[in-house]
C-alpha cells in the first residue's frame, strides 16, 4: 500500500504562541518498504506518525494511503507504541484479538489468527498470561502480534524498542526483520537511535531539529539480515550521525521539546465520541 505525504505542516498552539512541529514534509513510502524516521527529540517525527495514523490532523498538507486522504484512525494503519500500550484488563490472547473484534472478524477466526501471530512472536505459551506478568520485551512482542493480527497495510512504530535493554532490543531487531520479510508490511519506524535505523530501514529519513524538516534521505543497501555490530552498519551510522550532530545539539537546548512531546502523547483523534 502506497503512502504519500504531501506538504504536511503541523503547528501547535502553546501558551508561548504557535509552535511549528513539522514544516512542509514531502515523502513517499512504497508498498512493502521499511522506512525509518530518524531525528532528535522534538523534531516532530512522532507527530508525523500520529498524522499518518489519523490520531492527529495536519495544519496544512495531507497524507494519502493508496490515494485516499487520511482523516481518522483506521485498522489499515496500526501504530505500535514505545510503552506497548497493552490493555491490562485483558489477557495476552484477548489483547491480540482486540483489533479483530473491532473490525468484526467472527469469533472462531479470531482465535486462529491470534494464535498464528502469537506463535510468530514466540509467545504461544503465554496466551493466558496477564499483561502485568510480562517483561518489557514480551509486552512489545504482544503489541506487535496485536498490530499484525489486525492485518494492517502499514505498521507505524513509534520508538517501539526505546525502553528495552540492549540485548532484548537486538533480539527484537532480528525478529522484526524476519516478520517483515514474512509479511511484507509497509513499515514506518520512528527512532532516535541511528544504528537501529540503519539495521532496520530500506531508507533512513533524517529530520532536522524543530521545526522538523526532512534534511536528507539515506538509502541503505546492506544485505539482510543485518547485525547492529557489523562494520557496515557502524560505518553508515557514523556517517548519518555526522549529519545529525548539530540538530541533536539544537534539540538539547530547545525548551519546547518536552511540551511538544507531551502534546504528541495525547493525540487521540478528534472523533472519539
Amino acid at each position: 500500500m502506497k503512502l504519500e505525504i504531501r506538504g504536511v505542516t503541523k503547528t501547535f498552539q502553546s501558551k508561548n504562541g504557535a509552535l511549528t512541529a513539522l514544516d512542509a514534509i514531502d515523502l513517499d513510502v512504497q508498498p512493502g518498504e521499511f522506512v525509518c524516521l530518524l531525528g532528535p527529540s522534538g523534531c516532530g517525527k512522532s507527530t508525523l506518525l500520529n498524522i499518518i495514523a489519523g490520531l492527529d490532523a495536519p495544519t496544512r498538507g495531507q497524507v494519502r494511503v493508496e490515494g485516499k486522504i487520511v482523516t481518522r484512525p483506521g485498522p489499515d494503519r496500526v501504530m505500535i507504541f514505545q510503552s506497548a500500550a497493552l490493555f491490562p484488563w485483558l489477557s495476552v490472547f484477548d489483547n491480540v484479538k482486540f483489533g479483530l473484534n473491532m473490525i468484526g472478524v467472527p469469533k472462531p477466526a479470531r482465535q486462529v489468527i491470534a494464535r498464528k501471530y502469537l506463535q510468530m512472536v514466540h509467545l504461544a505459551d503465554f496466551e493466558r498470561a496477564s499483561v502485568h506478568e510480562l517483561s518489557g520485551g514480551m509486552k512489545q512482542r504482544v503489541a506487535i502480534a496485536r498490530a499484525l493480527a489486525a492485518d494492517p497495510d502499514v505498521l507505524l512504530m513509534d520508538e517501539p524498542f526505546g525502553a528495552l535493554d540492549a540485548q532484548t532490543r537486538d533480539l527484537l531487531h532480528d525478529e522484526l526483520q524476519t516478520i517483515w520479510t514474512e509479511t511484507r508490511k509497509t513499515i514506518v519506524f520512528v527512532t532516535h537511535n541511528v544504528r537501529e535505523a540503519v539495521v532496520l530501514g530500506d531508507r533512513v529519513v533524517v529530520f532536522s531539529a524543530r521545526p522538523g524538516r526532512i534534511k536528507k534521505i539515506f538509502t541503505i543497501d546492506l544485505p539482510r539480515p543485518r547485525q547492529i555490530e557489523s562494520y557496515a552498519v557502524v560505518d553508515l551510522a557514523r556517517e548519518i550521525m555526522a549529519e545529525l550532530k548539530e540538530d541533536v545539539l539544537a534539540s538539547v537546548h530547545d525548551p519546547q521539546v518536552s511540551w511538544l512531546q507531551g502534546m504528541e502523547a495525547q493525540r487521540v483523534g478528534d472523533d472519539v465520541l
Binding site: P75, V78, F81, A85, F87, G99, A150, Q266, V272
Partner: peptide, 14 residues
C-alpha cells in the same frame, strides 16, 4: 490517553 490511542488505532469507536 495511551489506551485511547491504542484502541482508536485498532478501530475502536462508539
Amino acid at each position: 490517553p495511551l489506551y485511547l490511542r491504542a484502541a482508536r488505532n485498532l478501530g475502536a469507536r462508539g
